[in-house]
Design a protein around this nucleic acid. Structure first.
Length: 495
RNA sequence: GCGCCAGUAGCUCAAUUGGCAGAGCAGUUGACUCUUAAUCAAUUGGUUGGGGGUUCGAUUCCUCCCUGGCGUACCA
């Protein structure tokens, strides 16, 4: 492995020597604290007031140009970089000797007055340089001239595996994670302002449910019992609704043991919120409003994503799934059976899985023929009962339809929501139907959850519930096209 | 899971039909008190992702494996 390479070892050995030299010279290379009073961007912004004034900054050495008895260095703090001019006659021979032992990557504090160099760069003329942390492992060095970048650190694998380096060397990516923080904060604010309770439900669950997915399995030693990492928190949050909390939400890490690609990470963040006495129509309004409210905290309601201009301001359209499928296939799918669906799918050259059921076929048709075209925000509504075991029958009286919506933007699914099924007998029946699918080979069919059913049997108020993919919302609002670029430490194979 | 592509120094990349594994930056030593890819001089650094094979000789050809990227399938 590259860590074992001789030349890297050599570099580290040299740095350790310098570290020892510093200690010999009476310099503590790892002091316990330091007080800076300015950030680099602030000094640049307030240059006219600060010129000639003393400031103290702290940060990492990103470039170093030593010239005998003087040197220039760029120091990077949380806000950016600023150049420091260090002159022996100014800082004194002891500090200058110590300074000469420093490397790119070391953390230092600099006190000095603000000035502009002959080349016109706002800089700090150092009066004192303090070593705050010596680095012994080299940083990838990115250089730049006339807007051209040299030796960029851009290997995706290295960036994801060594995110600390990525953040140091490509500081522009910090913006994505700052925005991610804002998005989540605004979600909380939005729901808190409307009287929602933030709840925490189990991640380790004896039964998993609330979505169609394969779980991660683990084992509790003391209980000698199998546990699953949650795939959703739906069933627990609904128990809280039964218990009398009328508005609850959780921003939850969910875990699904499935493939990973640019829109799927095995652990991902989902916002789920449930509100008693409202239906899915109310929730459509609320989701629209929530997304707008979050977008306003960032760059506004006109969003550019993946080269697509997406308008979050116009009312999101609401289209029944069967209507969309009729437009896409030319067939009225009301009252179709599995065989007819399969025939239609084949007529569009879609490859069908060996074993397939009605719900999976509908899903396939949607995915292939409809979803990629749902660029502007669209609520797909009124799903077939067969693929919605937790959603309530449609008020229209159609025995095949439930009150459910999914939100699509840019061809990606962002939310899934129902008027929640609160008829305990119907719910039991649905679980039994799922169990049949399961024994028929559908691994993702949901499992009978007696504890949940018992709760519903105690009486659950009419409820509207929503699940919203947080990572995807971050992707949309930061114009990132891979989920790995909105997750600080995306899942990677063990090396 | 399947398909395509890639892996050479700490970083970014070369290496002709199979013929001594190279450059820039970083590092080391020295010079240099307004530089900014600092400059100048000298210099260190390699099990070419790993195993096996073909060959007098493999970074190059074959094969298996590892890792990643992209696409595709399932899922949000």
């Amino acid at each position: 492995m590259s860590d074992e390479q001789k030349s890297l070892k050599q570099i580290i050995a040299f740095r350790k020597e310098k570290l020892a030299d510093l200690r010999t010279a009476g310099v503590d290379p790892y002091p316990h604290s330091f007080s800076a009073d300015h950030y680099s961007d602030q000094i640049k912004a307030e240059y006219s007031e600060l010129e000639g004034q003393d400031v103290t900054i702290a940060g990492r050495i990103m470039s170093l140009r030593k010239m005998g008895k003087a040197a220039f260095t760029h120091v990077q703090d949380q806000t950016g970089q600023i150049q420091c001019y260090v002159r022996r006659d100014e800082v004194g021979p002891d500090q200058y000797t110590a300074f000469k032992k420093l490397d790119i990557g070391d953390i230092i504090g600099v006190t000095g007055y603000v000035f502009t160099t002959r080349m016109g760069e706002i800089s700090i003329h150092a009066k004192a340089v303090t070593v705050l942390a010596k680095s012994i492992r080299p940083l990838p060095i990115v250089k730049e001239k006339d807007g051209e970048t040299f030796d960029a650190f851009e290997d995706k694998e290295l960036r994801y595996r060594h995110r600390h380096l990525d953040l140091v060397v490509n500081p522009e990516i910090k913006e994505v994670f700052v925005k991610r923080g804002k998005i989540i904060r605004e979600m909380r604010n939005y729901l808190d302002d409307r009287g929602f309770l933030e709840a925490e439900t189990p991640i380790l669950q004896p039964l998993y449910g609330g979505a169609f997915a394969k779980p991660f399995v683990t084992h509790h030693n003391a209980l000698d019992q199998k546990l699953y990492l949650r795939i959703a928190d739906e069933l627990y949050l609904k128990r809280l609704i039964v218990g009398g909390f009328d508005k609850v939400y959780e921003i939850a890490k969910d875990f699904r043991n499935e493939g990973m690609d640019r829109s799927h990470n095995p652990e991902f963040t989902m916002l789920e919120f449930y509100q008693a006495y409202v239906d899915y129509e109310y929730q459509m309004d609320q989701v629209e409003d929530l997304i707008r409210s979050v977008a306003r905290q960032l760059d506004g309601l006109q969003v550019e994503w993946n080269g697509l201009a997406i308008d979050l301001e116009k009312p999101f359209s609401r289209r029944p799934i069967l209507e969309l499928l009729r437009e896409a296939t030319g067939h009225d799918l009301n009252n179709t059976n599995t065989e007819e669906l399969a025939r239609i799918a084949r007529s569009f050259d879609l490859t069908l899985p060996e074993q397939t059921n009605y719900g999976q076929l509908l899903d396939l048709l949607m995915k292939e023929l409809v979803e990629p075209n749902l660029i502007q925000p669209t609520f797909v509504i009124d799903y077939p009962k067969a693929i919605s075991p937790l959603a309530k029958m449609h008020r229209s009286g159609d025995p095949e339809l439930v009150e459910r919506f999914e939100l699509f933007i840019g061809g990606l699914e962002f939310a899934n929501a129902f008027t929640e099924l609160n008829d305990p007998l119907d719910q039991r029946q649905r679980f039994e139907d799922q169990a049949r699918l399961r024994s028929g080979g559908d691994e993702e069919a949901q499992t009978m959850d007696e504890n949940f059913l018992e709760a519903v049997e105690c009486g659950m108020p009419p409820t509207g519930g929503v699940g919203l993919g947080v990572d995807r919302l971050v992707m949309l609002l930061t114009d990132q096209h891979s989920i790995r670029d909105v997750i600080l430490f995306p899942a990677m194979r063990n090396k």
